[in-house]
Nucleic acid binder design. Structure first.
Lengths: 130, 130
DNA sequence: CTACACCTTCCCATCATGGGAAGGTCAAGC
DNA sequence: GCTTGACCTTCCCATGATGGGAAGGTGTAG
């Protein structure tokens, strides 16, 4: 299987597969005589793992830790759970920050006429001198 | 006022002030004979505006649009409101995405013993073949 | 044998921010 | 006046994850 097919099968772009290999997240695959990367099913499985971890918001670094735990048959589930819950806390923190911004701005917008007149509490507030 | 004092007074780092100038977000200030940037109160006011817009999650580009509207005494508040509400929608979308990730992961974690045993539904799910 | 799809590596861009080096300036204290 | 330390200047580099694209090699179908 060449990189294009591995990309198709895993949902990770060829570009990103090469990048993950370059930064050491995944193992370099074997190469054909002409230098093409050749992937087998286990590689694709790993790529899918990476894609899912990323889609859960784990950084590439964190994904590396998860991969290590995944491959370690003697890991303690406590280690995984701790990593996961720490990540959950970070996600919720970021979400809360975004929602706070949205709420503030929505409030400002609700006081804005939104017509042809120039008066606008949104700009007034952002530009407030205090 | 030199750049350090402007940074102090506006809450925007000196590094960022130079950057904002470089990309054309703010006007180049006057220079002293020796080449130092010299800021006056209106410049600091603008910098504070930029800082507040950024802290509400507006990109530098969007902040530029807001600045233009802010300085245009004949703007229609409708234009500002539209920009703001579009941004609110984006913020809420991002927040929702993060929360969905957090919820998924929290659910997986709730099914994980979190003890010394290796069995872990979190890794099982991330590594699922389907 | 040609055309086309695919592969390789390499460089560049994004977005906003910080770090740091090399060198010039300014004010305070001696 | 001279030194010292804080400040300023520009320039380059790094981040994190991803995509774009160029230049050139490979593989396969017709």
């Amino acid at each position: 299987m060449n990189i294009g097919q591995a990309a198709e099968a895993s949902g990770v772009s060829a570009k990103m597969i090469r990048y993950y290999e370059q930064i050491g997240l995944i193992e370099p695959p074997t190469r054909s005589q002409s230098g093409y990367r050749v992937y087998a099913e286990p590689n694709v499985h790993t790529l899918r793992f990476v894609r899912r971890a990323r889609s859960l918001g784990f950084s590439v670094d964190e994904t590396g830790s998860l991969l290590t735990l995944w491959r370690d048959r003697s890991r303690a589930s406590a280690d995984v759970k701790r990593l996961a819950l720490k990540h959950v806390a970070e996600l919720e923190e970021k979400a809360a920050a975004l929602q706070a911004m949205a709420a503030t701005l929505r409030h400002l917008a609700s006081n804005c006429h939104g017509d042809q007149r120039p008066d606008c509490p949104i700009l007034d507030k952002i530009g407030a001198s205090n």
